[in-house]
Simulated scan of single mutants.
Amino acid sequence: MTGGAEADGSARERLLALRATTEARLAALGGTFEEVVAASEDTNADDEHDPEGATIGFERAQVVALTVSAQRTLDDVDAALERLADGTYGTCQSCGRPIAPARLAARPTATLCVDCAQRARR
């Protein structure tokens, strides 16, 4: 990554802040999931036939999806911290060019430059 130690320190701070936020979100989601499960155990709901059952099932699925997303973010942050440690952070994994600082500020876990990310989406 261009910019030296100061830029690396700033990137590390952003990544660690994102990691802390994501860990807190995961902890909250774990509690939410347990609350949804506990709420469904306290009722005599039949998910298949009871109109409320679909709501309970939806809530469980939503919490699971949010948990998977948060875990993926945590994995991405850890991978970015590894790239920072080995000196490859801020280098596009596709073309090898530097990733723009503005992109890294917006997406600290980015692995692709804007051009390569656009090509990957097509």
Rank of each mutant, 00 (worst) to 15 (best):
A38C: 03
A38N: 06
A38H: 00
A38L: 04
A38Y: 01
A38W: 00
A38P: 01
A38E: 13
A39S: 13
A39P: 04
A39N: 07
A39Y: 05
S40Q: 11
S40G: 13
E41G: 06
E41R: 08
E41A: 13
E41N: 03
D42K: 08
D42G: 15
D42C: 01
D42R: 11
D42S: 12
T43C: 01
T43S: 09
T43N: 03
N44E: 12
N44Y: 01
N44W: 03
N44S: 10
A45I: 14
A45M: 03
D46G: 05
D46S: 07
D46F: 04
D46I: 02
D47C: 02
D47P: 15
D47Y: 10
D47I: 02
D47A: 09
D47E: 13
E48T: 04
E48L: 06
E48S: 06
E48Q: 06
E48P: 00
E48N: 04
H49C: 02
H49M: 08
H49E: 13
H49Q: 06
H49N: 08
H49I: 03
D50E: 09
D50A: 05
P51T: 10
P51M: 13
E52W: 05
E52R: 05
G53W: 01
G53Y: 04
A54D: 15
A54N: 08
A54Y: 07
A54V: 12
T55R: 12
T55E: 15
T55P: 00
T55K: 10
I56D: 06
I56M: 10
I56Q: 08
I56P: 00
I56L: 15
G57Q: 07
G57W: 03
G57N: 07
G57T: 13
F58V: 08
F58M: 15
F58N: 14
F58T: 12
F58W: 14
F58A: 15
E59L: 15
E59S: 15
E59K: 11
R60W: 04
Q62M: 06
Q62W: 04
Q62C: 00
Q62Y: 03
Q62T: 09
Q62F: 00
V63G: 07
V63N: 05
V63R: 06
V63E: 09
V63T: 14
V63A: 14
V64S: 05
V64H: 09
A65C: 05
A65D: 10
A65Y: 06
L66I: 04
L66Y: 01
L66R: 10
T67C: 07
T67M: 09
T67A: 12
V68W: 05
V68K: 10
V68Q: 14
V68D: 14
S69R: 05
S69L: 03
A70F: 12
A70T: 11
A70Q: 12
A70R: 14
A70W: 11
Q71Y: 00
Q71M: 09
Q71H: 08
Q71W: 03
Q71L: 11
Q71D: 09
R72M: 11
R72T: 14
R72W: 07
R72Y: 09
T73L: 15
T73G: 09
T73R: 12
T73N: 11
T73S: 12
T73A: 13
L74V: 10
L74C: 07
L74F: 11
L74D: 13
L74M: 12
D75I: 00
D75T: 12
D75G: 13
D75L: 09
